[in-house]
Computed example of a mutant assay.
Amino acid sequence: MDTFDTIGFLGFDVFGTVVDWRTSVARRAEPFLRRHGIDVDPSRFADEWRAEYQPSMERVRSGERAFVRLDILNRENLGRVLLRHGVEPAALPDSELADLNRAWERLDPWPDSVEGLARLKRRFAIGPISNSHIAGMMNLARFGGLPWDVIVGAEIAQTYKPRPETYLRSIEAVGLPPERAAMVAAHNDDLAAASALGLRTVFICRPREHGSEQATDLEPARDWDVVAEDLVDAARQLGC
């Protein structure tokens, strides 16, 4: 694709685009919930935990709170969800809570992800522009075999997407101007924020990220530069 001839770096959203967070978190939460008699469906528990994600980051984005890493926010959010189900986090072993929180670093890639990334890597440098922290992305990459060249994102920028700094400081860190980078994501709002800064855009269809009743991001909201069924299809369209 000629429009990508000058592109040197592909930045990836990870949660939902590259890995299946919902199924993975539910699977790891299930024995914890059963062990402690918490009567909630594991998939619903994963959804409730994820629902705290954006509100907790918004406090940082708005300046209400200084930047803290996503693993810290996730641990706080876990406590809020447990309280909602009548469980006092302080009454549970800290080691178990810490282990459950690491579920976000043990997420299964979608079936096409590793092959698609490996193919894209033949032509482009690749790495996450994620709201996760560097250690979390490193651990997730080792768990799932994700072949990143570099890890950038929120911890580099000290703020969270879709704040412009998250994209711009990440691209600056890999030594390129925005027009020589592209954002790859399954979320239209992520691509809109990147596009406004001059990045090219690749939309990946993930209609089951939120389960069978997903109602968001089922299709591209705009005429993105590339619209692909999955990462293997994106690699094919980009000549990889």
Rank of each mutant, 00 (worst) to 15 (best):
I151M: 10
A173Q: 03
I134M: 02
I171E: 04
L83F: 01
G116V: 04
E155R: 03
A154V: 11
R102N: 15
A90M: 06
A90Q: 10
P93M: 10
W104C: 08
L100K: 00
A98M: 11
E115H: 12
S113A: 13
N139R: 13
M137R: 02
A182K: 00
A125L: 13
L146S: 13
A141H: 10
V87D: 15
V184W: 00
A91C: 14
R122G: 14
R163T: 05
L107D: 07
H85P: 15
D108Q: 08
R84V: 10
H133R: 02
A91H: 14
P177A: 14
A103T: 09
E96R: 02
G127R: 02
R163A: 13
V87E: 13
E165G: 12
P178N: 00
N131E: 03
P93Y: 05
I134C: 09
A173V: 00
A182F: 14
W104D: 08
V152W: 00
E172L: 11
L100R: 00
P147E: 06
D189Q: 06
H133L: 01
E96W: 05
W104I: 10
S132V: 00
H133N: 15
A135H: 08
E179Q: 01
P109I: 12
R180A: 12
I134L: 13
Y167G: 04
V114C: 04
W148N: 14
G144K: 07
D94M: 08
